[in-house]
């Protein structure tokens, strides 16, 4: 080969051809159920939780689930598949604030309205606002035909499938109901000691509500109500010593949130005296706040029965 023309035709068109093949392959795989997969057999998560849940919220979640669970990491490890018949998808995300959570929820609401939405209420959700990462991004939709995050998801899918790095990427960390089983990654060996060490920190609980976050919370609630979605809120059960130490701040937080939710919202308070048997039993926790499997089952059962799901 000795001319620019031939060179350009061969390699320029070759690059375009290979790119087209990659796009076709990625659409055929349809990792997030964006293009043709109906997801009846379930679509799990393998890589970034935020990107994955945002993309799954385009079609898979609204088409296959009736109820959504929202919240930060405190609810992300609740395995709603334990109650598969209720079709509850866990849209909670580790470290999520209200901006991120509503962005994912809004995407799911665009195509279908769920019957109910459960919200895990903890100051963390409204302590700040704004996207914490670039992972929830419109661009990711087209990224599903070929992008770094897609290929990373493929790679981690293989790593999990063949259990290559079980300590860092456990095989069954996620499931097709949005469950993020990070329990083994975060579990403290001595939960009581972990709670005690947390109590040494004066800012272990920041119960302040960011004003902009509260506005966004209101917008989310109004949006859900306008669509006729039944909202069920629950104040996340904090280990009793932590709740007791920060009780006055947490009560203030609860009062504000109650006002903003309105009287028509089903609201469960797992920190009141009725549930002290639960919050005083540290076997319900894996650390200073995240629930153990035993704790998760109890809380979800309570929500389902009390809220009539």
């Amino acid at each position: 080969m000795n001319t620019a023309s031939k060179f350009l035709k061969l390699y320029g068109l070759g690059a375009i051809f290979i790119t087209m093949i990659l796009i076709v392959l990625n659409v055929a795989i349809d990792f997030y159920g964006l293009f043709w997969r109906d997801g009846k057999s379930g679509i799990s998560i393998y890589s970034d939780e935020r990107t994955s849940k945002y993309l799954l919220a385009h079609r898979y979640v609204p088409n296959n689930f009736n109820v959504y669970l929202l919240g930060p990491s405190l609810s992300a490890n609740i395995n709603t598949k334990e109650f598969a018949a209720e079709r509850i998808y866990n849209l909670s995300m580790m470290g999520a604030n209200i901006t991120e959570q509503y962005a994912v929820l809004a995407k799911a609401l665009e195509s279908k309205t769920p019957s109910k939405v459960i919200i895990c209420l903890h100051p963390y959700l409204t302590a700040d606002h704004g996207m914490k990462t670039g992972m929830i991004n419109k661009k990711e939709y087209w990224g599903a035909v070929g992008s770094i995050s897609l290929y990373k998801a493929y790679a981690l899918g293989l790593v999990r499938k063949f259990n290559v790095l079980p300590d860092k990427y456990p095989q069954n960390q996620f499931n097709d109901f949005g469950y993020n089983n990070y329990n083994d990654l975060l579990r403290s060996t001595d939960v009581k000691a972990r709670i005690e060490s947390e109590l040494q920190k004066p800012d272990a609980i920041n119960a302040n509500i960011n004003l902009q976050a509260l506005k966004e919370f209101d917008i989310m609630i109004t949006d859900l109500k306008s669509r006729g979605v039944q909202i069920i809120g629950y104040f996340h059960p904090l280990p009793y010593p932590i709740f007791k130490t920060f009780e006055s701040d947490l009560i203030k937080y609860q009062v504000t949130i109650r006002e903003h939710l309105g009287a028509d919202v089903v609201l469960l308070d797992f920190n009141n005296s009725e549930y002290q048997f639960f919050t005083k039993d540290f076997s319900n926790y894996i650390d200073h706040g995240h629930l153990s499997e035993k704790g998760q089952k109890f809380i979800l059962t309570e929500i389902i029965s009390k809220a009539g799901i």
Partner: peptide, 18 residues
């Protein structure tokens, strides 16, 4: 030729990434 092709494909993937 291969270098150019690899560069174009990689750049397109990164362009389409966040």
């Amino acid at each position: 030729g291969w270098k150019l092709m690899a560069l174009i494909i990689l750049n397109l993937i990164y362009l389409n990434s966040t």
